[in-house]
């Protein structure tokens, strides 16, 4: 009979990692289920965050089983985190704001907006700032974080109608079929949408792994924005499920971010 006692810590280590993998998978599924009506990109980001947190906790527990003191490790990690946040506060704020501004701030390139005392046509949105072209032909760079602090006025006519939904399709999904099915699905929402503006898909970028698109729809009434957005997101998810020929597989723990719309 082999004495496994010396190997027990290693076995526990392995078991905890295995359990962590299972928990992260379940967490990903749960998050996806809870956020079916949210924007698919936000859902994917939340899944990624959930998976990372589960793995961090799992690794700490697993390392403990090897007899390594984790207090110092946790302290170092925490200090490093605080230092990084303090040192990179402004860029991180702009970077993070860009991400959320992309999804939730109601303007796009080409719109004319006013933020504080600045106004102009949006000609670029990069990771750090948003560039406006003023009426007197000057370039104005606004740090992205400003959009989460200040009120933004979109001066573009009918801008309130417009909903732009970013979509990331995995390379395995057939774009023509997906677009066609979405057009059919959206035709059923026509009572809530402005019929003068049928939905339009715009290709933003393309690679072997994924396709980034924007879907633009125009709501008929201002109060319809949220319900229509939720319905569009739901139909996106359903269409994606059908396009992939099976139920949506949640992102594999630690796996690539391409598994969701």
């Amino acid at each position: 009979m082999i004495d496994l006692t010396p190997f027990l810590p290693l076995i526990y280590f392995g078991v905890i990692l295995l359990l962590t993998w299972v928990f992260s998978y379940v967490a990903s599924l749960v998050i996806w289920g809870l956020m079916r009506r949210s924007n698919p990109q936000v859902t994917a980001a939340a899944q990624r965050l959930g998976v990372v947190i589960v793995w961090l906790v799992g690794i700490v527990f697993a390392v403990q089983e090897l007899g390594v003191g984790v207090d110092a490790l946790l302290l170092v990690l925490a200090l490093l985190g605080v230092a990084a946040i303090v040192a990179l506060r402004q860029p991180l704020e702009n970077f993070g704001s860009k991400y959320f501004a992309d999804l939730y701030t109601p303007f796009k390139i080409g719109d004319t907006i006013r933020v504080g005392e600045q106004s102009g046509k949006v000609i670029e949105v990069n990771a750090m700032s948003t560039i406006l072209l003023s009426e007197d032909d000057h370039l104005i760079a606004l740090p992205n974080s400003i959009f989460l602090r200040e009120s933004v006025v979109n001066l573009t006519p009918q801008a309130w109608k417009e909903l732009i939904v970013p979509i990331t399709l995995p390379g395995s999904v057939d774009l023509p079929s997906f677009e066609s099915e979405m057009m059919k699905a959206l035709s059923h929402l026509r009572l809530r949408l402005d019929r003068r503006y049928p939905p339009v898909f715009t290709l933003k970028s393309r690679s072997a792994q994924s396709t980034d698109l924007h879907l633009t729809v125009m709501v008929r009434r201002p109060e319809d924005r949220d319900p229509v957005l939720a319905e569009v997101n739901l139909r996106l998810t359903e269409t994606m499920e059908r396009a992939r020929g099976s139920a949506v597989r949640p992102m594999a723990p630690g796996g690539p971010a391409e598994a969701h719309p």
Partner: peptide, 13 residues
Amino acid sequence: WTEDYGEYTYYNR
């Protein structure tokens, strides 16, 4: 806003 338009889109895409 018709389902046929989905097919028109399909062909063009």
